[in-house]
Design a protein around this nucleic acid. Sequence first.
DNA 1: TCAAAAGTGTTCGGCGTACACCCATGA
DNA 2: TCATGGGTGTACGCCGAACACTTTTGA
Lengths: 249, 249
Amino acid sequence: MNTSHRTISNVSVDCVIFGFDFEQLNVILVEREYLDPLTGDIVIKDFTLAGYHIFEDEDLDNAAYRILKDRTGLENIYLEQFGTFGKIDRVAKEKDQLWLKLIDQGFADRVLTVGYFALIDSTKVKLFSHGSKIQWFPMEEARKMELAFDHQEILQKALETLRKNVRTEPIAFELLPQRFTLTQLQKLYEVITGNSIDKRNFRKKKLQMPFIVPLKEKEDGVSHRPARLFHFSREIFDNTRNERFGNLF
Amino acid sequence: MNTSHRTISNVSVDCVIFGFDFEQLNVILVEREYLDPLTGDIVIKDFTLAGYHIFEDEDLDNAAYRILKDRTGLENIYLEQFGTFGKIDRVAKEKDQLWLKLIDQGFADRVLTVGYFALIDSTKVKLFSHGSKIQWFPMEEARKMELAFDHQEILQKALETLRKNVRTEPIAFELLPQRFTLTQLQKLYEVITGNSIDKRNFRKKKLQMPFIVPLKEKEDGVSHRPARLFHFSREIFDNTRNERFGNLF
DNA sequence: TCAAAAGTGTTCGGCGTACACCCATGA
DNA sequence: TCATGGGTGTACGCCGAACACTTTTGA
């Protein structure tokens, strides 16, 4: 991690990085592991969100972009701040206290963390480890894990916010490749909201939206009838969005 | 302000306290004034949101409740966190730097602030000054004022969040007395959203909502036909809210 | 020819919207 | 009796929901 900046000891940023593999919603977690230097025994081994303290000389939003770039190499990604977590005891679990003592980075006892979620097209991303292992987990699995600190609570809030906002903001497309099929889009809405959707109604509605633009290309490499590809035109969206808060799906 | 606690120098909370006087949406601002101790000339005189640094021994949410109680005496008030503001230059305006130097409270150069908004029934609240004057301003006026720090930006975000959330969460009632008329409720929605609403359609819809309960009482002291009073039953709301995100107004 | 997913239309009920007049009360 | 806001019903169009079969492709 970059150490040429001074950090603010009381404030960190945690990024909930969402991805979609056309089957499930996934999230990136970072392994937190500490081995006894003498015996090699595992003292701590669990997972955290991707986070770090903010630097004194960067905007809060930039801290989130930095963390995201450090872990994925990606820039110009959709990032949304969804909450700040500041319970006194949020790092008070025994395991967390032990961890903080072991890594001994001089962070304050009291740390507030600002949560951001990122939406990325996971078909084209390589994860960077920087020492700690980092991997994708299906949301369902991640939601059952015992994460570090209050990260389970943060993950929950991120998911809730995503669920709400995906209905009124055109953010689902951030999780898909530039060219996608309507079935992929439908599946994405289904896994985010947890509802299943009628195919005909879904397609009828999408085809009416001028900013979902049909392309001439079709899928290839599939062993069934290939689907037409679409792309989301932000330009048309910005020009046609009407004032009402109507559901976008 | 309470000084028996140690504060966290990098983190503050600002409260946007909304009220409704049956005509407009109002917000509480605190006067920031500094007089030259020799000449008595006004060096700084403007307004800020109600805010303070958080204490080391309180949860983040509790800091917001504390500030609210200090200023209004109220407890058990609806409070919602809506964003955290952490641009590097958010306290860099010349006037703000001067202010920080003059009050000399040892706060850090870099302060992040967490924004909460409160919804209160302003028919029964007295404001507490604690040295600085504090008063209600109509939103329209407040939105044009040059507030301290980045408080104009914070106010804007608070208002946006209120506008969005009032459609899907039963929070409008927090701004009204326990017993209210439908016309008051309608006016409230109108001033929050900025749209005007058809009276018959509005009433038809409200009367279908089981948690808006008609009372036997009517208004009195008005020089026209008195209106029926209603109250919002949270209990019925909790039992009848369906899963869909349908607009609540 | 089979398996797998793509693609396609109609009906129905409910909800939002537009719209104008009489009523009850205090001054 | 007047001024002021309170209170009420109908008609129409659109949108969301339910529902089943044919088509295209690669294996």
